[in-house]
């Protein structure tokens, strides 16, 4: 049986978990989950569970990494050994290195690094339980943790992915869908300006499918942004 033969969407357009094409999985956000960190946030997104913690701004050492005019971001994405069905061997691998880099590139685009010359801000993303789309959850949780640490940013980063299963474009693939997915388009959106700071894609999408996936992501990002603002308001008070 080929990938495309597995039916993941029924005749009424319902997905395996009952969602419609444009729906996202349930999301729960909590700030300040790591008491010893300067800022932290956890996100439960479907059965993904990610904890991001932020330390700094602090002295950047060794000195050769210092930048005279701005802070440097030191971002690490890591998966816990028990986060996947088959045990994940601890340690840095090529995949986590790449995700760390693109996450860092995205966050550097919003953090006001020039306010902290010669210093370093550490961002640690720990995937405790992985379902699908951990890089998106990680990036979004990291921007929440930076906000919790009180580090000035031009905007939050909301990251979400859309993809294609059975020839139908759907938003926010879960694990089963991801296994049979024919395309994946993760994006990092700045909800206030609509600009992008993170973009990857793999698979096969026609121009119209691509547009559909893009629009789903933009729509979902605004919904998730509302949840992020609620979580921040819950801890710190203030309006939406």
């Amino acid at each position: 049986m080929g990938y495309s033969d597995v039916q993941m969407i029924d005749e009424n357009g319902n997905r395996v978990d009952g969602r419609k094409a444009g729906d996202i999985r349930p999301i729960e956000i909590e700030l300040g989950v790591v008491p010893v960190a300067d800022g932290s946030a956890s996100m439960r997104w479907g059965t993904n569970y990610v904890i991001a913690s932020v330390y700094g701004p602090m002295e950047a050492h060794p000195r050769k990494i210092q930048r005279q005019e701005r802070a440097v971001l030191d971002v690490r994405y890591n998966m816990a050994p028990f986060s996947t069905t088959d045990r994940f061997r601890p340690g840095f691998n090529r995949r986590s290195r790449e995700i760390s880099k693109v996450t860092s590139d995205a966050l550097e685009s919003v953090v006001l690094l020039e306010l902290y010359p010669r210093s370093k801000i550490r961002v640690e993303i720990e995937v405790i339980c992985a379902e699908a789309g951990t890089r998106c959850v990680g990036l979004t949780a990291a921007s929440l943790a930076l906000a919790d640490a009180g580090i000035p940013m031009t905007d939050m980063v909301v990251s979400v992915a859309s993809g294609k299963i059975n020839g139908i474009v759907v938003c926010d693939l879960n694990k089963e869908e991801d296994n049979y997915g024919a395309a994946d388009l993760p994006m990092g959106v700045l909800p206030n300006s609509g600009e992008l700071v993170f973009l990857q894609m793999d698979g096969d999408l026609s121009p119209s499918e691509f547009q559909e996936a893009w629009d789903y992501n933009m729509e979902a990002a605004l919904k998730i942004h509302v949840l992020m603002k609620e979580a921040i308001a819950k801890k710190y008070g203030g309006g939406q």
């Binding site: 010893v36 960190a37 913690s53 690490r76 601890p90 640690e124």
Partner: peptide, 17 residues
């Protein structure tokens, strides 16, 4: 195995165990 990830404290350095 025990992992002391750098996320768990500012005194923990990244790197091998």
């Amino acid at each position: 195995s025990a992992e002391l990830r750098p996320g768990a404290g500012r005194h923990i350095e990244p790197g091998p165990p």
